[in-house]
Design a protein around this nucleic acid. Structure first.
Lengths: 156, 156
DNA sequence: CCTATTTTTGATAGCTTTACTCGAATATTG
DNA sequence: CAATATTCGAGTAAAGCTATCAAAAATAGG
């Protein structure tokens, strides 16, 4: 329950990776997929959604790939979640119009409260803070700027 | 996404109904099902889980039915959720043992934070407060002469 | 223009979860 | 015993999630 889909999980990996190497321009999905262990075709699908939401930009052709379309500070966790998994609706009842009017369903208001609180929290978290945690975590193996040979398994 | 199952939705309706009429003893599932608009067989299944979790008690035979096994104050939303939908795991990654050790998955720690915060909120809400909201709500629908309902929710 | 590279799009298949349903068994009251 | 209720194990249809595939379109460099 309350499970975030793998789509979002992958999407966040992708966004974090792009944010970390933001100054190295566009990155090809094929490389990203290998590095982040995401099925390539699935990454394409996810990327498309993020592009349509205005979070990513893409350029085809050689040297092309994906890049962030705005600053990491302006990308919130909530935006990513809603883009990839649809709107947050903590109870199935909440998107039915008569939900709040039926006195036999007294839990609706509670769900609405919890949902609002959750949305607030999710909106406070932006990509920058996610990247900070990622950097802290991977401080040991931080890649050197420049060309990185394909080493999919950089284990600590 | 973040959707609570219908199981939980039904379960809460059931618990609230039982809490409201707590002093009228056991209530037959057949009547509860009709009143709360829950498929009878499904209510049985849900009731069983709640009984196994020690939240409900039951007695078969004529005059039997379901009743709360503890005070509504001691029943939290988190308990109900975990009983009916399994443990809260906001990201699928979080119940895999190697999840936190893989440096390519930097979002794990963030999910853990959010999850913890959500769990805290859910644990603060008990059945009593849910019943209060239900009562307030039905008061609106059963207007008393001279009483003007307020639009916004009021913490009782 | 040509070609290699890379994204874009639409369709679809397999798996898992959800939301139930069913039939038979078991316990209780009177 | 008979009527009333819950209990248990299993099963099923539909929906949603997680990809996968083939073909198309766009772009850079020569």
């Amino acid at each position: 329950m309350f499970r975030v889909s793998r789509r979002v999980d992958y999407g966040l990996r992708l966004l974090i990776a792009l944010a970390v190497d933001q100054n190295s321009g566009s990155q090809a999905t094929s490389r990203l997929a290998a590095r982040l262990d995401i099925p390539l075709a699935f990454l394409h699908q996810i990327g498309r959604s993020l592009i349509q939401a205005g979070i990513l930009r893409s350029s085809p052709g050689p040297g092309g790939g994906l890049r962030l379309s705005r600053s990491p500070e302006e990308i919130t966790l909530l935006q990513v979640l809603e883009t990839l998994d649809g709107p947050v609706r903590i109870s199935a009842c909440l998107d039915q119009p008569n939900c709040d009017e039926d006195p036999d369903l007294p839990s609706a208001e509670t769900w609405a409260d919890i949902q609002q609180s959750l949305i607030g929290e999710l909106n406070k978290i932006n990509l920058t803070s996610l990247v900070d945690k990622a950097k802290y975590k991977s401080a040991v193996y931080t890649p050197v700027p420049g060309y990185t040979p394909v080493s999919k398994s950089i284990a600590i």
